[in-house]
């Protein structure tokens, strides 16, 4: 069978969808177009048991296409306003994929400020729900531009989401509800499943070498034993993605909308 042509965004959507495999009946929250399409693809294909919302206040069993809906009529199955999302967070049956501004070697994340806290160089959104999400349920990360600015050398400037840095925890705090899933970037898929939760590269996108990833990461990375190439989207997955994203918003998520299969010299860093 001929390999279908696909974009890097589509490869990342498929990689993101794997984050929610075998999670059970959790609320799948993909924040941003690629994570949301990833969650939707997971529900349509391998994990129909996932709970999903219309990104506003209602539960749906059929993921809602992103962007203007035309004649599409959402089919609602329940109600999930913000307050109930909070209930889900604290109860733990949720897996979110978020895009923090910084991530460190301990999987701590930052969505608040870059620079000095009292007079930041850049003030972003604020910690939002990151402290509560990160300590209560599984979280994955989405990084559209893999760089040392995101994967910082030291600790993130403002720890908004918890990680595995022992000094941040007391023995009496419960750490067993937290978990870090995968990190999907424009170069690779990573996890924090090495020894002592060290970051590992699990798969490399076509044309990307481990060395390229390491050079653009502020902390040392391990190679997962099973390190290979990130699985390519199948024709069926591409059809579903096109249906879930009829306006091709996915083409606007990554700078230059790169092709999925790139030669090393075509990989933009």
């Amino acid at each position: 069978m001929a390999t279908p042509d696909f974009s890097l965004a589509e490869l990342m959507i498929v990689a993101a969808s794997e984050a929610w495999r075998d999670n059970g009946e959790v609320l799948a929250s993909g924040l941003g177009i690629i994570p949301r399409l990833g969650a939707s693809l997971a529900k349509v294909t391998h994990s129909p048991e996932l709970l999903m919302t219309d990104s506003e206040a209602f539960l749906v069993e059929e993921p809602i296409p992103v962007g203007p809906r035309g004649n599409y009529e959402p089919k609602y199955s329940g109600y999930m306003p913000f307050e109930r999302v909070f209930d889900c967070v604290w109860h733990g049956r949720r897996h979110a994929m978020v895009g923090p501004t910084q991530i460190d070697r301990w999987a701590q994340s930052n969505l608040s400020v870059v620079g000095d806290y009292s007079k930041p160089k850049v003030a972003m959104l604020g910690v939002r729900g990151l402290p509560g999400n990160s300590i209560n349920h599984l979280n994955s990360f989405f990084v559209p531009m893999h760089s040392k600015r995101v994967f910082v050398e030291g600790e993130v400037d403002m720890v908004s989401g918890v990680g595995f840095k022992p000094e941040r925890w007391s023995d009496l705090m419960r750490r067993d509800f937290m978990g870090i899933g995968v990190t999907v970037t424009n170069l690779c898929v990573m996890d924090f499943a090495g020894l002592d939760n060290a970051a590992r590269v699990v798969s490399l996108h076509p044309g990307v070498s481990f060395e390229m990833v390491q050079e653009n990461t502020g902390f040392p990375l391990l190679k997962a034993e099973e390190l290979g190439e990130t699985p390519h989207p199948t024709a069926e997955q591409l059809d579903i993605i096109a249906r879930l994203d009829p306006h091709n918003l996915r083409s606007k998520q990554l700078k230059g909308d790169p092709r999925g299969i790139r030669k090393p010299e075509e990989v933009e860093l």
């Binding site: 604290w90 701590q108 608040s112 806290y117 910690v127 990151l130 402290p131 509560g132 990160s134 300590i135 209560n136 403002m158 720890v159 908004s160 989401g161 918890v162 990680g163 840095k165 941040r168 925890w169 705090m173 419960r174 750490r175 509800f177």
Partner: peptide, 13 residues
Amino acid sequence: PARAGLATDVLTH
């Protein structure tokens, strides 16, 4: 009581 905020800079700041 809550867990949210523990082990983060929400406490520090």
